[in-house]
Design a protein around this nucleic acid. Structure first.
Ligand SMILES: [Mn+2]
Ligand SMILES: [Mn+2]
Ligand SMILES: [Mn+2]
Ligand SMILES: [Mn+2]
Lengths: 218, 218
DNA sequence: AAATATTTTTAGACTAATCTAAATTATATT
DNA sequence: AATATAATTTAGATTAGTCTAAAAATATTT
């Protein structure tokens, strides 16, 4: 039996670890979990005892195969619920994350597999993130941030790194959605802002925006 | 802020109290909650402090207006989710209760109101129980148990008291569903079993079954 | 109206998850 | 290599929800 809190720690470790293959350190987890390092230490000991994580004192933590399975399963549920909320219940993409944080912990194999079928087996969530299958496998799409895109090239918007409501609403108000075609017109060396063209109108976005928007060359 | 456990206690008190207008006693709650009387005492003290319940030592407990609102709101969510599972995700009526026990605690006004709309504002759940509106109001349907039905009269099946999987599967296997027309043919005084006619075939059901099946005269 | 049985409450202990403050280990700087 | 700084762990408390065992109150029976 796995508790809701354990699931959230496992998810946090998974997300922190998926960038490099290095171990995840205590303070990083504490920050994501909005808790204190001492609490994290207690929890990773417990996860280690339950074989969800490998842990040696002062050496950071990694997930075991079992831990990774738990993580991808929660992510699968989270993203499927997000699709449901947007596609069926008319939520906008900036409203779904918080609710999905709760729905992802509902434990029913049948529920999630029937939901998957009801949604016609979506491959991506409303933020462009891939949805793992029952075994935890999912495609990695090749994508770069707008910050690293080439001037003169044409891209398609395929995802976001920041899923905060304020960022997503900013994109809405600038007519940027998943699938939107963007041409990079100019990079300003002074503040790293970028001028882009969307549907024949030009806008300038800050470096901050550019770093959080994922593109794919077309 | 209300905890999941508090919500479940409030729901239990509501269900136990809705039969009579009397106070609900500690042991009854303990049995429903699968816990010990001492734990119940602690919790009803807490619910009383939070103004969800009125409580005097040794005198049993009743819900306040606020408590009843919490209760009907959870019941609204529980029953809407049950409808969703049956109507959209192809669950059968004996599979939904357990999952709904978890889904009913998801806290999002928008979620539940959009779900209500998506389901086209159903009035009853898959077991024939009425779905409260946002204010907690719902119609009481006049219904009697098969045990109290008159020999010779014709009834429509409108609900069940026992929502256990085994009882619902029993009904399935005997072609009894919500809306099924039933004619009462004979009451056996010896063991209170009842002979009924369904779609021109006759079956005999036990007193136990008869007490858990709700009917309405047609 | 006592005596007995039942119900309810209290007292004290346990677990999960958290915290603060102090101690320990690792890393960076001189 | 010694010292300073940062990260991590430990020790001891706290809160929610639970338990067992004992005490207190209420209900039932004689
Ligand atoms: Mn999300
Ligand atoms: Mn997402
Ligand atoms: Mn139910
Ligand atoms: Mn129901």
């Amino acid at each position: 039996m796995i508790t809701l809190t354990e699931e959230n720690y496992i998810k946090a470790i998974y997300h922190l670890g998926s960038n490099g293959e290095k171990t995840v350190n205590t303070n990083a987890i504490a920050e994501v979990m909005q808790t204190k390092a001492s609490s994290v230490t207690d929890m990773i000991k417990k996860l280690s005892e339950k074989n969800y994580a490998d842990y040696k004192k002062y050496q950071g933590v990694t997930l075991t195969k079992e831990g990774r399975f738990v993580a991808t399963n929660i992510i699968r549920k989270h993203r499927l619920w997000e699709v449901f909320l947007v596609e069926k219940l008319n939520f906008s993409w900036d409203e779904v994350h918080e609710v999905a944080e709760h729905l992802e912990h509902i434990k029913s194999e049948k529920l999630i597999n029937q939901l998957d079928a009801f949604l016609e087996f979506p491959k991506y969530d409303p933020h462009g993130d891939p949805i793992p299958d029952k075994e935890g496998n999912f495609q990695h799409i090749e994508k770069i941030t707008l910050a690293k895109a080439e001037v003169g090239s044409v891209y398609k918007c395929v995802g976001v790194d920041d899923t905060s409501s304020s960022f997503l609403k900013y994109l809405d108000s600038n007519k940027i959605a998943l699938g939107t075609i963007i041409t990079v017109k100019h990079k300003e060396p002074y503040d790293n802002s970028i001028k882009i063209e969307i549907e024949s109108s030009e806008i300038v976005v800050s470096q901050n925006v550019a770093k959080n928007l994922y593109l794919k060359k077309v």
